[in-house]
Nucleic acid binder design. Structure first.
Lengths: 152, 152
DNA sequence: TTTATTATTGATAATCATTATCTACAACTA
DNA sequence: TAGTTGTAGATAATGATTATCAATAATAAA
């Protein structure tokens, strides 16, 4: 199921379609294409980036359509929303809380779910703060490997 | 300097005024009052909350003034911006990266800087991902101590 | 103290992301 | 195959934030 730190997009694709059908939603050509993109969520796109990518194939598609389907999939727990500075990005490949690394030079968003010790953090918070953690959003800003050389 | 998990607001107040003066900024009555609030940053307010609080004392103060001074203090590194879902909150008391706990029931924002093991995370990221961390924003969502009882 | 310089002010327009509204259309079901 | 109803696109509305600009006031210089 997991290929190279990424869940098999085909699996995610089918899973999302099933979830939409089960909740009484309908499958349209636009949704198929959007869910295809979200299944991989290459680069953790935001709504506008998804819109631009889909517009090539579907020139009449509307931004509202993107937002509506994203809201639907968020409610179903099939898409993770990443809240950045006045800008929401989406991950339909791994729709559960996990860390992200954002390069402040090239602005790319990387997955950081190789990092262990998150579970320890949750536990420490419950113990020290008496706070019951249900989800988290962990974002680390800095320089990715490529940009470290470009900048120096 | 540190009182009860909080930096002495008086210290922060003076520090921010000094920074503004040093950068060629001017001290006005509105700024004095805003900086007084930011020095404590009780509850991690957003711009609108600061505006509402200041309006009692200064009925003619403008939201734009709040935003402009916040931008100035951010640039000087004297205020930390916390990017939440389409909503920025501010911490002028501890203007450096530290974890926050947000209760999904009462929406309060708590400081989580008692948590150790953050430094370990940074190091693990540098080693495993070859990513050079410069700052972070760590937010944990869940139920605070009080709300755990209310909800159950 | 007075004056000159110029940063700051409030009002408001502009922008940007996101959400809501509404009618025509099309996906699914019986 | 037709009826039901969720979805589409267009666009208005919203909410947070930023930009603009002339009047004002804080500071520095005389």
């Amino acid at each position: 199921m997991i290929i190279n730190n990424k869940i098999d997009p085909e699996f995610r694709y089918k899973k999302m379609l099933t979830k939409i059908r089960e909740s009484g939603g309908r499958i349209t050509s636009h949704r198929l294409a959007l869910i295809r993109l979200l299944a991989a969520s290459e680069g953790h796109p935001n709504a506008t980036q998804l819109y631009e990518a889909l517009r090539r194939q579907f020139p009449t598609i509307s931004l509202a359509t993107i937002y509506k389907t994203l809201a639907l999939l968020k409610d179903e727990g099939e898409v993770l929303e990443i809240d950045l500075h006045n800008d929401s990005h989406y991950d339909g490949n791994k729709p559960y809380s996990h860390p992200h690394l954002i390069c402040t030079h090239c602005n790319r968003i990387f997955d950081g779910d190789i990092i262990s010790g998150i579970q320890n953090l949750n536990q420490e918070i419950e113990e020290k703060c008496n706070f019951q953690v249900s989800r988290h959003q962990l974002v680390f800003y800095g320089l990715c490997e490529e940009c470290q050389q470009k900048v120096s």
